[in-house]
C-alpha cells in the first residue's frame, strides 16, 4: 500500500510564549522546531503500516526551506520519500494549504502514484484550524474520519476507533481514505543513528506552489491577559505534611 503523511513544522515552546515586536509571529530566536505532535504519531503509524503490509510511504510538508529538517526527521523514523511544498515564510491559511496539498497529490497520481491512505494530524499545535484533512478529503472525493486513536487495515478497509469524553466510538471505512490522527494512537520510536544517516542522504522533491487568499487572514497575535495572583508557599521538603493536609481540609477535600 501507499501511504501519504502530511506534517507541519512548529516551534517547540517551553514555559511561555514570546511574540515578535510587530505581533505577527512567535519569537522563535531561542526555540527549536519539531513535527507537530499529532503528526509525529501519523508518521509512526505510516511506518508501522508499511512494515506490516509492505508498500511505500511519503511525507509531505508545506513550509519554508528549513522545514526540510522535519522531513528528514520523518525519514529518519522510516518514511521512504519526502516532498517539500516550499513557501516564502508567510502564513498559508487552511484553504490555501489544502489547494497546494491537493495539487501535489494530483501530480503524484498523474505520475502513477496513488495513495491508499492519506494521514494528517487532527489539528496543528500552532494554528489549530481543525480542517485541512477534511478539506483535502472533500476535494479528492474521499471518505474521512478525524481524530482517530486506533487503526487497523483489514480486507481493504480501515477500522478505526476514536475517544470521546465518555468512552470510545468505532467506524469502518473503505480505502482510499483520509484519516486524521490524534497523539496516543502509538508511541513514536526514537530515530536510529543509521536511520538518521540514511535520511541525510535522501533526496527531497521540491516545488513552489502559488499562494492564494483563502479568506482567513491573520491581523495580529496577542497573549491572553493573565489574572494577577499570588503563590502561597506551604514549606519545604519532608516536613510539610501537616501544612498540606491543612490545605486539603481548607479546600474540603478531606
Amino acid at each position: 500500500m501507499n501511504v501519504l503523511v502530511c506534517i507541519k513544522r512548529v516551534p517547540a515552546t517551553g514555559g511561555h510564549i514570546a511574540l515578535t515586536p510587530d505581533g505577527q509571529n512567535i519569537d522563535t530566536r531561542y526555540l527549536g522546531f519539531t513535527i507537530s505532535p499529532h503528526e509525529e504519531c501519523a508518521v509512526e503509524e505510516a511506518v508501522r503500516l508499511i512494515e506490516k503490509h509492505g508498500g511505500s510511504s511519503t511525507v509531505l510538508t508545506l513550509g519554508p526551506e528549513v522545514a526540510t529538517e522535519q522531513l528528514r526527521d520523518a525519514m529518519a523514523l522510516g518514511m521512504d520519500r519526502a516532498v517539500l511544498l516550499e513557501t516564502d515564510g508567510r502564513e498559508w491559511d487552511p484553504v490555501a494549504t489544502t489547494d497546494a496539498i491537493v495539487a501535489a497529490i494530483e501530480r503524484d497520481r498523474a505520475a502513477g502514484r496513488d495513495y491508499d491512505l492519506l494521514l494528517f494530524g487532527n489539528e496543528s499545535a500552532d494554528s489549530a484550524g481543525y480542517q485541512v484533512g477534511v478539506r483535502v478529503a472533500a476535494a479528492l472525493d474521499l471518505p474521512c474520519v478525524t481524530g482517530i486513536k486506533a487503526l487497523e487495515i483489514r480486507e481493504g478497509k480501515a477500522a478505526v476507533r476514536r475517544q470521546t469524553e465518555s468512552g470510545w466510538e468505532t467506524s469502518e471505512v473503505t480505502v482510499p481514505a483520509v484519516l486524521t490522527v490524534k497523539e496516543g494512537i502509538n508511541l513514536p520510536r526514537y530515530p536510529s543513528l543509521p536511520g538518521r544517516l540514511k535520511a541525510k542522504k535522501k533526496e527531497i522533491e521540491r516545488s513552489r506552489p502559488q499562494w492564494v487568499d483563502g479568506g482567513l487572514e491573520k491581523v495580529r497575535l496577542s497573549l491572553p491577559v493573565q489574572a494577577a495572583h499570588t503563590v502561597e508557599m506551604l514549606g519545604q521538603n519532608g516536613d510539610v505534611g501537616p501544612q498540606v493536609v491543612e490545605l486539603f481540609r481548607r479546600l474540603r477535600l478531606l
Binding site: 495572583h229 503563590v231 502561597e232 508557599m233 506551604l234 514549606g235 519545604q236 521538603n237 519532608g238 516536613d239 510539610v240 505534611g241 501537616p242 501544612q243 498540606v244 493536609v245 490545605l247 486539603f248 478531606l254
Partner: peptide, 20 residues
C-alpha cells in the same frame, strides 16, 4: 500555582500520605 511546596516529590508526597 496557588500553593507550592519546594522539595523532592517523593519526600513531600510520602510526608503528606503519612500525615493523612
Amino acid at each position: 500555582a496557588d500553593y507550592a511546596v519546594i522539595g523532592d516529590v517523593k519526600a513531600v508526597v510520602t510526608a503528606v500520605t503519612s500525615e493523612i
